[in-house]
Design a protein around this nucleic acid. Structure first.
Lengths: 143, 143
DNA sequence: AGAATAAAAGACCCTTATATCTTTATATTT
DNA sequence: AAATATAAAGATATAAGGGTCTTTTATTCT
């Protein structure tokens, strides 16, 4: 559905939002260790999110990645859009070039339900929602 | 979700089931043209399905791939199993190594609904179901 | 038997996703 | 100012998925 890269990106952003204290920067090493993901690869992904204005970063000692409180209002769909593009949520389940309700593949209707429920989640849930569930202890970021 | 390869496989099997007359064999060229998929690649996929005893084939003039009526009772999950393996339906949405209802990622519950609905479709619907919808003209195999 | 036909099989190639390594730029500390 | 820590940037490596090409094998027709 979404790429592994995009999953890492989402987990990274939620992690930064969780740790968000005023002006606190978190190094890529700590992020990668906490989330149990490859450090350099995570670095590239977070850099991309900086370029897309979803995160901020500073170099030098005590540098690192950080977010400000407005991140809590960001809807997940913005991260998916930045990493995979929205097209990832529209591809035909059976690999046809074109697939739509007017010209559906055999799985189209069944899958459309899922597709739109995932899309609705990405659209309507913001980072705050996910942060709260992590703080609750009802969901987990690291394996 | 499932691989493109697996989507081609499903479309190929449904196509053969549609065209199934006694002892009729269909060449890979015709199959690929009808479904608008790469011929050689489709050949490899159908060969794999022959090895997995889902299809049959014969070489030589008037050879080709074919199925018998029992194909209509095959559930789609058997094709997914043969090509991608059932693991493809169990992967964590956010790319964690382990993800379960006891140790859920932030998207786990939302995605579980989709996952199980897709699984249920694959499990419960047989080829006959899809063949009927194609014959109806309500769904389409080729783009 | 020989020619023609069609799938099987395997080697190979291209693209994308995933991941790592190296160098550079920048900020902080001393 | 110099040393140091740290991320940015970009080149490179690896693996998997997707796709093509060539040779072999089996079948049928003449």
């Amino acid at each position: 559905m979404i790429s592994k890269t995009c999953g890492y990106a989402i987990r990274g952003v939620i992690f930064l939002a969780l740790e968000n204290n005023i002006n606190k920067r978190i190094g890529i090493q700590e992020i990668a260790e906490e989330l149990k993901v490859p450090q350099q690869f995570m670095g590239k992904i977070l850099q991309e999110l900086v370029r897309k204005d979803i995160l901020k970063s500073t170099k030098g000692p005590h540098g690192g990645f950080y977010v400000n409180d407005s991140i809590l209002d960001l809807s997940l769909i913005r991260i998916v859009e930045a990493i995979d593009g929205l097209g990832v949520l529209k591809k035909c389940f059976l690999g046809r070039e074109e697939c739509s309700s007017e010209n559906p593949c055999p799985m189209h209707d069944e899958f459309e339900v899922c597709r739109s429920s995932i899309f609705e989640t990405f659209q309507s849930k913001n980072i705050r929602y996910f942060v709260e569930h992590i703080e609750d202890g009802t969901t987990f970021l690291a394996t």
